[in-house]
Design a protein around this nucleic acid. Structure first.
Length: 917
RNA sequence: GGGCUCGUAGCUCAGUGGAAGAGUGCCUCCUUCGCGAGGAGGAAGCCACGGGUUCAAAUCCCGUCGAGUCCA
C-alpha cells in the first residue's frame, strides 16, 4: 500500500514522526523521537500490567465516556444491534460494529441510519475459542465501540482521515493517557471483500483501537492497489470504520494480569468460591504478574519454559484459573447468544451456541463445579443489568434451553462411553487406538478425544490413546473440501442486458385483485419479454412466479408465460419459445392464472399468520428459517429448541384461525428502512433483508405482526379462509417445519383426510369413531394368528419327521432321506432337516410353493467332513435354475424351474452317492 | 449448506447375506417364617417404514420417517 496514504495533516501539525519498527519493520507514527519499536505485541511486552495507563474505569464508565465524547462532536448515538447477524447471509454472528451496515449501507445502496454515528456493539468471535482463558486477552464476546462516517465521492465529505486521528488523540488525552507513549501503527486492513489503509492505536504494549479507512473493494485481475496478491479498486464510497476495544480500555485502566480480571471480577470470584479455590494472584502474585506481562509476547508453553515453571504448578494453579476465566467469558457469550434468540442446534449459528455451551460443561466438570450452568449465566446477566437490561427478559427461556442442553450432552456422553469401550476393545490387539478411530468418535458421535482418553484409562488402560496436538484442525481439514457457491453467471448477464431498461411498473401491488392488463413491450430477447408495466408477480420471498398469457393486440399468437423474474426492478417474462415473434413497442394484453395467484396470495398471508401464532405459542425465539408457498400447501421452517407437541401444534392452528375470524386488516405500506427498523426492530426481516432504501411493510392488525415483505397479500385476514396445519417435521436439530394449507386448499386437505378415514372405516365395516379401537384389535389378532400359525407348522413338521423317517433308504452306509413335500416353506424344511440330521439322517428335502421350488439339505455332524450339505444344495439348485448355499451341516437354496424338481432331487442324490463311495 | 453414524424384546445392546440373540426387567414354580438372594421354566419381536437386488435380506442398494454428531 502506498505510503502517501498515511500522510496525515494532523500528524504534521502535532509534531509526529514516522519511524520503522526495529523488530517487525512496520511503519508507525509517534511523538516520541527516541522510540525504536512500534509498541505493539510481540515487539513490546505488556508494560501496563500492574501499572495502569490511566485512571481506573469500569466498562459502563468507558462506554459512556466514549459515546458521550463522540456525541459532543456531532455523532448520533445508536442502540446496539443483535449479536446474531440475521441481515447477513455470509455471517452468523455480529463480528464488528461495521457489520451492522454491511453490505447495503457500505455499498451506498441504503443510506446509513445516521451520519456520522457512534455505537458500542457487542460482538462475538469464536475463531480463537481454544485461547479463551489462556491468552489473557482473548474474549469470545467483546464490545466494539465505533464511530463511523459514510462518505460518497462527489458529495460533501462528512470527515476522513484527519478528523478520525484527531478524535482518537483527543479521546485518549481526555482519559488521561500519556500521549508520548501512544503510537499509530500502519497496518493495511482487508476483510469481507473490502480493504483500506488502517492505523492501529497502541500504548503500553496493548492495541486499544483500530482506525480503518475503507475505500477499496476486491476486483478480478487488476485494479489500483495490490494487497497480498489481491487486486482492489477505489469504491464510490469511502468509510471511516473504527473499532475501539471497550474491554481493552477497561483492562488498561486497571492493569490487572488478564483482561478477564478487569472485566468480570465478580464472576471470577463466584466461580472460585464454587470451586473451593482462591485466586492465584493472592498466593502467587509475583509469578502470575510476570507470566501476564509475557503473555502478549510469547505462547504459554514458551513462558513456562522461560520462567522454568514446574508442570505441577501449571496443572494445579494455572490451568484451573484459566478454566475459571473461560467459564466467566462463556457465560457472558451464552447470555447474549440465547437472549438474542439463537436456538442451540447442530447447524448454522445454533451449532456455534452448542459448541460454546458444551465447552463450558466440560470446564465446569474439570473444576468440579456442579452448579447448573443456567444459574451461572443468569448470575452474569445480573452483572450486566446496568448496561444490558434487556437480557433479563429472557432468563426463563435461557434456563429451559440450558437445562435441556445439559441433559442432551449427558446422554451423548453416556452413549459415547459405551462406544469408546467397544472401540478400545477392537484396538486392543494393536495396543493403541488409531487416529482414524479417534477422529471418527468425535466427528460421528461428538466424543471429544480428551473424553476418550479418560474412558480408555478407566477401562483397564491397556489401549494407549494419543491425541495429536493438531487434532481439531485435522478434523476441520477433513471437511475442508467445500465448493463455494459462485454468483450465477446467467443472472449476471441478465443484469447487464437489462441495465438500460426502465424499471417495470408493478401493477400486482397497485391492483392486487386484477387478472388482466394492457402494456407496451419495451424489449424482447432470447425468450424474455420486458413490459412497461405488469401484473405478473415475479418469484420472490418464497412465493412462486405467476403464469399466464401475453396476447399481442395485432395478431393471434398467444405467448405463454412460464416464469417471471425480477432483475434489479426490471421484470422479465419468460415465455415458451423464442421472443422474437414480438416487436418492441407492440401493445399486448396480459392475463394471469388468477386461481393460482389467489392460492399463492392466501398462502402468503397465511404464512404471516402462522408465524405470528407460532411466536405466541412457542416464544419470541421463534424465527423464520425458510419458507415456500404453494398452490395446495405451504411450508414454514422455524427455529425452536424441541419438538412441537401435538397440543402446541393444535394451539397454533386454533390461534391462526382465530386471527382469520377476527378479520383484521392486512395493511401494506412503503417506509424508509431506517425508520422501520427503529419502529419495529429486526423482527421485520423474517424472510430476509431487502437491499433498498425504502422497504415494503406488511402489517396485520394493530402491529400484531409486522414484516418486510414483497409478496402479494389478502387485504383482510378473513380473506385467507381456513388454515389447516397438516403436519410438523424436524428438518434439523433446532429447526421445525410446519406444513399447512389455506383457503380452498385447506378445505380440500380436510376433505382428503376425511376420505381416508371413511375408506378405512368402510373396509373394516365399523363406524369412524370405532376405527382406532378396531384397528388395534385387528393388529393384536393378526399377531396372535401369526403365532398360532407358526406353532401349527411346527406340529406338522414334527408329524412329517416321523413319517419321513420311514422313507429313509441306505446309500453306501448312510441313512438318506430324499423327498419332495407339498407346500412347505424353507423355514419348515429347515426345521425338519435339522431335527433329522440330529438323529443321524442325511436329508435332501424339497418343496414347491407357487412358481418357486426350494431345497434344504442336512448332513449329520459325524459325516460333515466327507460330504457337504452346501455342495448337495448347489447341485440341486443348478438344475432348478437358481442358487443356494449354507454350512457343511445344513444348507438351503431354490430356483424357479419348478418342472425340474424331480430331476433336481436325483441330481442331489447322485452327489451323495459319488461322495460316499 | 455439506459430511458421517444409528434405528433389533419394556430397557441397554450383540448379530455384515444362509433358523431372531444376550443382559436386564416381567410372569409362573421351587428354596425361605418373611425379606434379600438363589435355582428351574415361560411370555415378550411388522429387526422403523416403502421399494429394489438375490434361490435367500435384520444384514447389500435406493427412497421416506425418526434420532445423534461434526464441519463451513
Amino acid at each position: 500500500m502506498d505510503r502517501s496514504e498515511y500522510t496525515i495533516e494532523y500528524f504534521k501539525e502535532k509534531g509526529f514522526v514516522r519511524k520503522e519498527c526495529k523488530k517487525c519493520g512496520s511503519g508507525f507514527w509517534t511523538r516520541d523521537t527516541d522510540r525504536e519499536v512500534c509498541g505493539d505485541a510481540p515487539c513490546e511486552t505488556y508494560s501496563f500490567i500492574g501499572k495502569p495507563i490511566f485512571k481506573e474505569k469500569n466498562a459502563d464508565e468507558i462506554r459512556e465516556s466514549f459515546l458521550a465524547f463522540f456525541e459532543s462532536h456531532g455523532h448520533t448515538r445508536l442502540k446496539r444491534y443483535p449479536v446474531v447477524a440475521r441481515w447477513r447471509d455470509d455471517l452468523y454472528l455480529n463480528i464488528a460494529s461495521i457489520a451492522n451496515f454491511q453490505p447495503f449501507v457500505t455499498s451506498g445502496k441504503v443510506p446509513p441510519p445516521a451520519n456520522p454515528l457512534v455505537i458500542s456493539q457487542p460482538c462475538i468471535r469464536l475463531e480463537d475459542l481454544e485461547l479463551i482463558g489462556k491468552s489473557g486477552r482473548h474474549l469470545t464476546t467483546f464490545e466494539m465501540m465505533g464511530h463511523h462516517a459514510f462518505n460518497k465521492r462527489g458529495a460533501e465529505e462528512i470527515y476522513w482521515k484527519n478528523d478520525t486521528v484527531r478524535y482518537c488523540d483527543e479521546y485518549l488525552k481526555q482519559l488521561g493517557v500519556d500521549m508520548d507513549s501512544v503510537t499509530y501503527k500502519e497496518a493495511p486492513w482487508m476483510g469481507g471483500g473490502n480493504a483500506g489503509p488502517c492505523l492501529e492505536v497502541v500504548t503500553g504494549g496493548l492495541e486499544l483501537a483500530t482506525l480503518v479507512f475503507m475505500d477499496l473493494e476486491l476486483t478480478q485481475n487488476s485494479g489500483d492497489t495490490n494487497i497480498d496478491g489481491q487486486w482492489y479498486r477505489k469504491m464510490d464510497t469511502y468509510i471511516v470504520d473504527t473499532g475501539y476495544g471497550l474491554e481493552r480500555f477497561v483492562w488498561a485502566s486497571k492493569g490487572t494480569p488478564t483482561v478477564y480480571d478487569a472485566i468480570f471480577p465478580e464472576m471470577i470470584n463466584e466461580l472460585l468460591t464454587l470451586a473451593g479455590r482462591e485466586h492465584p494472584l493472592k498466593s502467587h502474585s509475583e509469578q502470575i504478574l510476570e507470566i501476564a506481562r509475557l503473555c502478549g509476547v510469547m505462547k504459554k508453553k514458551e513462558i513456562v519454559k522461560k520462567l522454568n515453571i514446574s508442570s505441577d504448578f501449571v496443572k494445579t494453579v494455572i490451568e484451573p484459573i484459566e478454566s475459571v476465566y473461560a467459564v466467566a467469558d462463556h457465560t457472558r457469550c451464552l447470555a447474549f447468544m440465547l437472549a438474542d434468540g439463537i436456538v442451540p442446534s447442530n447447524a448454522k449459528e445454533g451449532y456455534l451456541a452448542r459448541l460454546v455451551l458444551r465447552r463450558t460443561f466440560r470446564m465446569l466438570k474439570s473444576l468440579k463445579i456442579d452448579t447448573p450452568l443456567e444459574e451461572l449465566v443468569i448470575s452474569h446477566i445480573k452483572l450486566l443489568h446496568h448496561s444490558f437490561p434487556e437480557l433479563e427478559q429472557y432468563v426463563d427461556r435461557i434456563s429451559e434451553i440450558l437445562s435441556l442442553e445439559k441433559t442432551r450432552y449427558e446422554e451423548t456422553l453416556t452413549k459415547g462411553e459405551r462406544i469408546v469401550r467397544q472401540k478400545a476393545k477392537e484396538s486392543k490387539a494393536k495396543g493403541k487406538m488409531p487416529l482414524d478411530t479417534l477422529i471418527n468418535l468425535y466427528d460421528t458421535h461428538g466424543i471429544p478425544p480428551e473424553f476418550a482418553v479418560e474412558i480408555a484409562a478407566e477401562s483397564g488402560g491397556d489401549v494407549a490413546v494419543d491425541v495429536p496436538e493438531d487434532f481439531y484442525s485435522q478434523v476441520a481439514k477433513m471437511h475442508a473440501e467445500e465448493k463455494k457457491g459462485e454468483a450465477d453467471p446467467f443472472v449476471h448477464s441478465l443484469k447487464e442486458r437489462t441495465k438500460s431498461i426502465p424499471q417495470t411498473l408493478k401493477l400486482y401491488y397497485d391492483k392486487p385483485t386484477a387478472a388482466e392488463f394492457d402494456a407496451t413491450v419495451l424489449d424482447a430477447f432470447d425468450n424474455f419479454v420486458v413490459l412497461d408495466k405488469t401484473l405478473f408477480y415475479p418469484e420472490g420471498g418464497g412465493q412462486p412466479a405467476d403464469t399466464g398469457f401475453l396476447t399481442p393486440v395485432s395478431g393471434e399468437d398467444n405467448l405463454k408465460v412460464v416464469d417471471v423474474m425480477n432483475v434489479d426492478g426490471v421484470i422479465l417474462h419468460k415465455i415458451a419459445g423464442a421472443a422474437n415473434r414480438i416487436d418492441k413497442g407492440a401493445s399486448v394484453r396480459g392475463s394471469i392464472d388468477y386461481q393460482r395467484r389467489m392460492a399463492h396470495t392466501r398462502h402468503h398471508s397465511a404464512t404471516h399468520i402462522v408465524i405470528w401464532a407460532a411466536r405466541k405459542v412457542l416464544g419470541g425465539h421463534v424465527w423464520q428459517a425458510g419458507a415456500q408457498k404453494g398452490e395446495d400447501k405451504s411450508r414454514l421452517d422455524i427455529t425452536h429448541f424441541k419438538r412441537i407437541s401435538d397440543a402446541e401444534s393444535s394451539e397454533i392452528e386454533m390461534l391462526a384461525n382465530k386471527m382469520v375470524m377476527r378479520n383484521e386488516v392486512i395493511g401494506v405500506h412503503v417506509e424508509d428502512k431506517n425508520e422501520a427498523e427503529k419502529k419495529y426492530g429486526f423482527c421485520l426481516y423474517q424472510g430476509g433483508v431487502p437491499p433498498s432504501k425504502e422497504i415494503r411493510i406488511v402489517r396485520i392488525g394493530e402491529d400484531e405482526d409486522v414484516q418486510a415483505c414483497a409478496g402479494t397479500h389478502c387485504s383482510k385476514t378473513g380473506d385467507v379462509g381456513p388454515i389447516k396445519l397438516l403436519r410438523t417435521e424436524r428438518i434439523q436439530d433446532g429447526i421445525e417445519r410446519l406444513w399447512y394449507s389455506a383457503g380452498e386448499a385447506a378445505v380440500r386437505a380436510v376433505q382428503a383426510r376425511e376420505e381416508l378415514i371413511k375408506k378405512s372405516a368402510a373396509v373394516l365395516r365399523v363406524p369412524q369413531e370405532k376405527l382406532p379401537a378396531t384397528v388395534e384389535r385387528f393388529f393384536e389378532e393378526w399377531k396372535q394368528l401369526k403365532k398360532e400359525n407358526e406353532s401349527l407348522r411346527d406340529e406338522i413338521a414334527e408329524l412329517r419327521v416321523g413319517w419321513l423317517k420311514g422313507c429313509a433308504r441306505a446309500i453306501s452306509g448312510l441313512n438318506v432321506i430324499a423327498e419332495i413335500l407339498p407346500d412347505v416353506d424353507t423355514k419348515g424344511l429347515l426345521k425338519m432337516a435339522s431335527q433329522l440330521s440330529e438323529e443321524n439322517f442325511l436329508t435332501i428335502l424339497m418343496s414347491k410353493k407357487g412358481n418357486r421350488a426350494s431345497v434344504v439339505s442336512s448332513v449329520p455332524a459325524n459325516q460333515k467332513d466327507s460330504i457337504s450339505a452346501s455342495e448337495v444344495v448347489k447341485r440341486v439348485c443348478e438344475v432348478l435354475g437358481g442358487g443356494g448355499g449354507g454350512t457343511p451341516g445344513i444348507a438351503q437354496g431354490g430356483g424357479d424351474k419348478v418342472a425340474n424338481i424331480e430331476e433336481a432331487l436325483l441330481a442331489g442324490l447322485r452327489v451323495v452317492e459319488a461322495k460316499s463311495l
